[in-house]
Design a binder for these strands. Sequence first.
DNA 1: TGTACATCAGTGAACGCGCGTTCACTGATGTAC
DNA 2: TGTACATCAGTGAACGCGCGTTCACTGATGTAC
Lengths: 220, 220
Amino acid sequence: MIFTPLGYRFTVSIMSETATAEARPYHHGDLRRALIAAARRLLEAEGPSALSLRAVAREAGVSPAAPYHHFKDKSELLDAVAHEGWEMLNAALASARVDTQSTHDKLVALGVAYVCFARDNPSVYRVMYNSSRDREDLSPALKETGAYRQVRDALMAGADPVDHVGLELATSAAWCAAHGLAEMASFRQFDQIKATVGGEEAFFRGLFGHMRVFPDEPAE
Amino acid sequence: MIFTPLGYRFTVSIMSETATAEARPYHHGDLRRALIAAARRLLEAEGPSALSLRAVAREAGVSPAAPYHHFKDKSELLDAVAHEGWEMLNAALASARVDTQSTHDKLVALGVAYVCFARDNPSVYRVMYNSSRDREDLSPALKETGAYRQVRDALMAGADPVDHVGLELATSAAWCAAHGLAEMASFRQFDQIKATVGGEEAFFRGLFGHMRVFPDEPAE
DNA sequence: TGTACATCAGTGAACGCGCGTTCACTGATGTAC
DNA sequence: TGTACATCAGTGAACGCGCGTTCACTGATGTAC
C-alpha cells in the first residue's frame, strides 16, 4: 500500500472492492447486517430498554436516519434481530440433538441447549419471545427447522402409538418448560441450588432430567 | 345531604371524614392505593410499555408530581404493584390447593391457578416477574405464603423419602413449567390445539397433566 | 472508453412528543396552648 | 373553644433529555449510449 498525497482515498476505494471496507467509505457495504449486529451488541450490553433506533445507528457509526434505508421502522429492525436469533437457536438445537441415543437423552440435550442459548443471549431471547407473541406463524423457513418441530420430532421417535393430540400436548409442555427455565435461569434465587448440584449446567440437566412430558415416559 | 350555596364543599368535607371521599377533596385520602390501582388498570389496558409515572398520575386524576409524596421514584411504584400482584397470586394458589386430594391433583390445580392468574393479568404478571429478577429474596412475608413454598409443600406431601436436593429440583421444575406456560398461554400458536382439546383451561390441565416433575411420580 | 444521468445510500438538522423529576407554591389538617 | 403554627399532601409550571421519524441534501455507484 503506497501513500501519496491523494493516495489514502484511492487506496481505500480499492480496498473496498476487495475486502470489507475498514476505513468506511461513504457507502457502508452491508449496513443492514451491521445494524442487526449492532442491535445484538447493544441488547446484550445494555438490556432491551436501551435499544433505540438512534442507539443502534450510533453503535453502527452511522447517522440516525440511515437505518430507514434498510428498515421501514424500528419494529422491522427488531423483527430482523428476532429472526436471526431464531436461526441461531435452531442451529444450536440441531447440533445438540446429533449425538444422543435415547429419546429422553435427546430431550434433555435439547432443553439444555435451549436454556444455554437463552442464558448466553438473554436480551436477544427476550426480543425473540416478544416478536413471536401475537404472531400466528413464524416464517415458513423458520418453521421447518424450528424449535417446536425439533422437540416434536424427538418426542415422536419415542412415542409408540402416535397419538396426535398427546404429541402436541407433550411438545407444548416441553416447550413451555424450556421457556420457563430459559427465563428464570439467571434468577438469583437459584444460586444456592446451582452451587449444591455442581454448577449451572448441572442444574439445567437436573431439572430436565426430573421432568417427564409423557405420563408413560420411562425414567432413566 | 343538604345543598346550600356553600354546602357542597362543606358536605364533601364531612363525607371525607365518614366515608372515602368521592367528589375528591384536596387531600385524596389514600392516594398510594389509588396509584397502585391506576397502574394495574393502565397495565392491563395498554400494556407494560404504556406505564409511565405521568400516565399513572393522569389515570388517578392527580398532578404528575403528586406520586412523589408516596413513592421515591417510578421503580418504587412498580415494586409496589409487583408486591400486590404476588399477594393476589399467592392467595389464588392457596385457595386452589384446598379441595384436592392426591399430590398430582394438587400440583395440577396449583399450575392451572397460576397460569389462569397470568392469563388474566398478563401485564401485572410481567411486572412481577421483572421485579423478581436480580432480587436475592422477596420480602419475608411473601416468602412464607409464596408460590415456591406452596408448590414445595404440595410436592413434599407426595415424596416419600425426603430427598432435599430432589425436592428443590422438583419444585424448581414445577415452577419453571408454570412460568413458561404462563408466559406462553396467550400465544396464537396454541389456538388450534386449545380448540382441539376443548378450551383454554382444558389445554392448561392437559399440559400439567402430561408433566411429571418426579421421575417416580405415578401417572393418573 | 467516456460521458450523462438515474438511482442508491448516506448526512445532519429539525420536528414534536412524552418522559422522569424538581421546584416553589398552597390548601387542608393536626396539635399545643 | 379559639387561635397560631407546623406539617402534610396536593398543584402546575418548568427543566433537560432521548426518542422515532422526516426532510432536503449530497456523495457514490451503476447503466445506457
